[in-house]
């Protein structure tokens, strides 16, 4: 697979094998995939198909057993922990299924925290955090702590935090799994809007049909391999 400037992510013959006791589990078995800038892509498949593993590898949270991953034109494989942390901080936004936000911080502080790590000045941090929270529909909830927010509102804070650091890509691991359908739909609409307005690449792992309806490209995984790749 040749690198083209439009490719945000290139996954080249990537395998990931876990050892559980004496048993070897092949989570990914030699996947090759390219994802373009600005895509709104869902990685779909049943449990154990390798969706989360692939997302973790793209995000530099885990390293492949073999193969290469290139993110925004830069090789991720083999980077030190420190460089991977830098890459996650500046290039990737994460939205997890749960435990997404820090409980002792308010919504605004959660959004600001990632900019603090980036070294953004205090005034700019606050302004950007307020603006993005307004944009995700939490205008009057800036100072609420996570315990005072619903699950959907917490996920919106997580999306705001993922976007505010101006990443090249947002990786969302089953972001609607713990939400009711109406809340999940609202969240998806909001992310789709972000994708269109800001041009941020979104990759989801999901087995939620609603997410797949919103996705413009669906990559189905089965037994650690791509079984289907459909662009709408």
């Amino acid at each position: 697979m040749e690198h083209t400037p439009n490719h945000m992510v290139e996954i080249i013959d990537v395998s990931k094998t876990y050892t559980q006791g004496k048993l070897e589990v092949h989570a990914l078995a030699g996947i090759s995939l390219a994802l373009d800038r600005g895509e709104f892509t869902a990685l779909a498949g049943p449990s154990g198909s390798g969706k989360t593993t692939l997302l973790n590898l793209i995000g530099g949270l885990d390293s492949p057993s073999c193969g290469r991953i290139v993110l925004d034109g830069k090789e991720v494989t083999g980077l030190s922990q420190s460089r991977l942390a830098d890459m996650r901080l500046n290039k990737i936004g994460f939205v997890f299924q749960a435990y997404n936000i820090i409980p002792v911080l308010s919504a605004r502080e959660n959004v600001e925290y990632v900019m603090l790590m980036q070294g953004v000045p205090a005034k700019e941090r606050t302004d950007r955090a307020r603006a993005i929270l307004d944009e995700v529909g939490l205008a009057n909830m800036h100072d609420r702590r996570p315990a005072e927010l619903s699950g959907g509102q917490q996920q919106r804070v997580a999306v705001a935090r993922a976007i505010v650091s101006r990443p090249a890509i947002v990786l969302a691991d089953e972001p609607t799994a713990n939400l009711d359908s109406a809340t999940g739909q609202g969240l998806l609409e909001m992310m789709a809007k972000m994708n269109e307005k800001r041009g941020v690449t979104f990759i989801f792992s999901t087995h939620d049909k609603m997410v797949m309806e919103y996705a413009r490209r669906i990559v189905r995984l089965k037994d650690g391999l791509v079984s289907d790749d459909t662009t709408k």
């Binding site: 995000g59 949270l61 922990q81 420190s82 942390a85 830098d86 890459m87 996650r88 901080l89 500046n90 990737i92 994460f94 997890f96 435990y99 997404n100 820090i102 409980p103 925290y113 990632v114 790590m117 935090r161």
Partner: peptide
Amino acid sequence: EFGLLKALGMKP
């Protein structure tokens, strides 16, 4: 929480 912070790019 520490895992989340690391995922967000916080260094050890």
